[in-house]
């Protein structure tokens, strides 16, 4: 084996499947490289083979057909922010993509696929995708499989990044009356937040008809607290509900992260604060 990595450039999904099927786990898919390259430069990661997926047209572009929106995994944050399809149908997602740190340079090269597969606790896209109930298509063992993003995140054997390829993200448009918000608390220099929350709510006059809240950056993966809020359906919105939601969001964080973004107890408290701010802002937008 050479000291230096080899390089593979599959031109379509068939070639990608063939390459992934024949290589060991030392192979690494590279999209924008905005997650991989900092680790490589610091010696934390040494791929034996790079699989560059940037030539595969099936991974590119945003489309809308019969009320179904598809985002190719090799779509950069800048395009998610600026796409008319996303802005009109999924404003929460285009807003969240704009909250990513690292500046215009990272927005121009970092992809939605790379962001998802990293499953990094501090990244900004997963909470919104989970709130929106996204599905994903995965190419594994030569076949495409569709599954809920939430299920993929629970599956430790997904093999994404070396043995399997994230092809696209599938979403349904938000209803025009839905209120939404993504709140990110930043207290340190650099791009990352210390807690965040994505919320989507619909109201019938002032009564809650649906409510989803995902809290991120406070535990290993974002936490969906929507089930714990199901009793609020049918209730009238009030300041008091916001306070209850704050308490429930904090209580849902069983194993808070404790790192340079803040210690565990504080992160748990901030999970609540972000959930409250997100629902308050979402309610203001609803209707």
């Amino acid at each position: 084996m050479s000291l230096y990595p080899a390089f593979a450039r599959p031109r379509d999904l068939g070639q990608a499947a063939e390459i992934m099927g024949s290589l060991s786990t030392g192979a690494m898919i590279i999209a924008g490289g905005q997650e991989v390259m900092p680790s490589v430069n610091y010696g934390a990661l040494m791929p034996e083979v790079y699989i560059d997926v940037g030539q595969i047209t099936a991974l590119k572009g945003i489309s809308e057909e019969n009320g179904a929106i598809q985002i190719g995994s090799f779509t950069v944050h800048r395009d998610v922010q600026q796409s008319d399809v996303i802005q009109n149908n999924l404003p929460l997602l285009s807003y969240a993509a704009a909250q990513i740190g690292g500046g215009m340079q990272v927005h121009n090269r970092g992809t939605i696929g790379g962001n998802i597969v990293s499953m990094h606790p501090l990244y900004d896209i997963l909470p919104s995708l989970l709130a929106l109930g996204a599905d994903v298509d995965i190419l594994k063992d030569g076949e495409e499989q569709r599954m809920a993003l939430a299920d993929l995140m629970k599956d430790a054997s997904h093999g994404l990044g070396s043995e399997s390829l994230l092809v696209r993200v599938l979403l349904k448009p938000m209803t025009p009356d839905a209120g939404w918000a993504y709140e990110k608390l930043k207290i340190t220099a650099g791009g990352y937040g210390s807690a965040n929350a994505a919320a989507i709510v619909t109201l019938d006059s002032d009564k809650i008809t649906s409510l989803r809240i995902i809290v991120g950056a406070v535990s290993a993966l974002p936490v969906d607290i929507s089930d714990a809020l199901s009793d609020y359906r049918g209730q009238a919105w009030s300041e008091h509900l916001a306070e209850e939601i704050e308490a429930k969001a904090s209580a849902a964080i069983k194993e808070p992260l404790s790192d340079h973004q803040g210690d565990g107890d504080w992160r748990r408290a901030m999970a609540g604060v972000m959930a409250r701010r997100a629902i308050e802002a979402a309610v203001k937008r609803a209707g």
Binding site: F7, I30, G33, Q34, V36, M37, P38, N41, Y50, D52, G54, Q55, R78, G102, M104, Q105, V106, N108, R109
Partner: peptide, 20 residues
């Protein structure tokens, strides 16, 4: 920072082989 096809990028975290 450089500009690649009209869009700025950080060249330290851009793998040259991917540029075609």
């Amino acid at each position: 920072t450089v500009s690649i096809d009209g869009r700025v990028a950080k060249s330290c975290i851009t793998l040259a082989a991917t540029l075609g």
